[in-house]
Design a protein around this nucleic acid. Structure first.
Length: 468
DNA sequence: TCCAATGATTTTCA
DNA sequence: TGAAAATCATTGGA
């Protein structure tokens, strides 16, 4: 109403077709009385009055009035004047509200959403961010589970963002169209210039862009939370299962002279640990975790050898017994498998693991654990342990071993007890002697780190590492 | 709640 | 680039 009143006031004194227009019926006539002028003034006053009071009337009544006004003979002239005035006012307003510069906050949000892969073309749902985080965590492929989780959540955010953005754009367009239609409709009865409509559209877009900003801000917050959780999760740890720790410890203590597993060995250990590990969904031990474990183990062992002696004894004994069982099983196997050809040698699962029958078993066993030359030579107990396990599997049945075998085991134990490094382990009373560490606190320099499975050999094959 | 154990990360070095 | 060393941070038992 105020706007109308202002327009009406502005109309006061404006010349219309050579006549002065007076604003409203209530306004006093400025000049002298003229019969014809009075009549016209009356008409204009009527129209304006009706315009002013049109909103106070019922819809039907207003529609009827509106129609009447549209058909009024003075309407076009009045309308053009009003448009002229409105145009001037509109221009001044428009001049005052020139195009806003791009909001830096919005630009920041846009850039972040683009960097995180939320907005812009889909390229794996923020794989760049995930890769960056992976690089920070030290292993690109090792964190694939976490990455896929991250990516899945980011994709979820992306989808929600795009759905909401679509809804927002739709709502914005619908509202703009509605307002434009409304203004176009109203422009028949009140002066609304195209520029004014344009300005109104601009206002609507600005209002909607604040909603868009909120949406972008919320999305950014969600991404930040997800990211921080993902990065924090890297620090979260779960203890390895007992079996996994045992496997790693067994390898460590049996390779004490050179506890540096090769990449293949690490992979094999990781695989081995993952089979037995039970830490819930997605809790496989990775190669980098194996590396971490050995790194920690080496440093902690070196720092406090005394503390680890008991553990070393335990694992050394375990390794020796496992080996003994494996050999006993092999002996048993040779006896049962080749009854008609006792001198043809015995063959185990692996084809490479063949022995010349000319050697007596005791000599064989002695050679095995003293590292002396022979067709069957175990380099160190570590390789022995793992190789034997893979040869013999976990299904070794002690009951199958007869008295003869048992005596072989006893012999073996005796032989092992004389082998450097494990003498105390089987003696029980004396402490395990840490070997491999040199005077400087470092491990002896060995040729190549032994592997669980040599790349050139199959499972269960025997290596020729004589570092022990 | 404390604290040792331990997995992970960061920094330094060869 | 891998390992050592230091450190952080969580876990789990007492």
């Amino acid at each position: 109403m105020d706007e109308q009143a202002r327009i009406m006031q502005a109309l006061g004194g404006v010349s219309l077709a050579g006549h002065s227009i007076q604003g409203g019926m209530a306004l006093p006539p400025p000049h002298g009385h003229d019969g014809i002028d009075d009549g016209r003034k009356q008409d204009i006053g009527d129209i304006l009055h009706q315009i002013m009071t049109i909103t106070d009337q019922s819809l039907d009544e207003a529609q009827a009035k509106k129609h009447g006004l549209n058909c009024h003979r003075m309407k076009p002239a009045l309308f053009s004047v009003l448009c002229e005035i409105k145009e001037k006012t509109g221009l001044s307003i428009r001049g005052a509200q020139e195009e806003d510069p791009p909001d830096p906050q919005l630009m920041r949000l846009d850039n972040m959403l683009l960097a995180e892969g939320v907005s812009g073309p889909e390229k794996g749902g923020g794989s760049a961010a995930a890769a960056a985080a992976a690089a920070a965590s030290g292993g690109a492929s090792d964190n694939s589970i976490e990455h896929s989780d991250y990516r899945a959540k980011l994709t979820q955010i992306r989808q929600i963002y795009h759905t909401e953005l679509e809804k927002y754009e739709q709502a914005c367009n619908e509202f703009t169209t509605h307002v434009m239609n409304l203004l176009r409709e109203q422009s028949r009865t009140r002066p609304i210039s195209p520029k004014e409509i344009e300005r109104m559209v601009g206002i609507i877009h600005r209002k909607f862009s604040s909603i868009q900003m909120q949406l972008k801000q919320s999305t950014c917050e969600a991404v930040m939370i997800l990211r921080s959780r993902f990065l924090d999760a890297r620090r979260k740890r779960r203890n390895f299962s007992k079996q996994a720790t045992e496997i790693l410890n067994e390898y460590f203590y049996s390779h004490l002279s050179n506890p540096y597993p090769s990449e293949e060995a690490k992979e094999e250990l990781a695989k081995k640990c993952s089979i037995t590990v039970s830490q819930g969904v997605g809790s496989t031990i990775t190669v980098s975790q194996v590396s971490n474990w050995f790194g920690n183990k080496r440093i902690r062992y070196k720092k406090n050898i005394g503390k680890f002696q008991e553990e070393a004894n335990l694992y050394a004994a375990k390794t020796a017994v496992t080996a003994a069982h494996a050999v006993a099983a092999a002996v048993q196997n040779s006896q049962t498998n080749s009854p008609t050809t006792p001198n043809s040698g015995f063959q185990m699962k692996d084809e490479e693991f063949q022995l010349d029958s000319a050697e007596s078993k005791n000599t064989l066993l002695t050679n095995m654990f003293t590292g002396s030359s022979g067709s069957f030579n175990l380099p160190n107990s570590g390789d022995m342990f793992l190789s034997m396990q893979s040869l013999n599997g976990d299904s070794y049945q002690g009951a199958q071993v007869g008295a003869n075998v048992q005596s072989q085991v006893d012999t073996l134990r005796h032989v092992i007890s004389q082998t450097a490094g494990y003498s105390e382990a089987l003696g029980g009373n004396t402490m395990y002697s840490p070997h491999g560490l040199n005077a400087n606190g470092g491990w002896h320099d060995t040729t190549t780190p032994s592997a669980v499975i040599s790349p050139t050999e199959g499972p269960g094959s025997v290596h020729s590492d004589t570092s022990n």
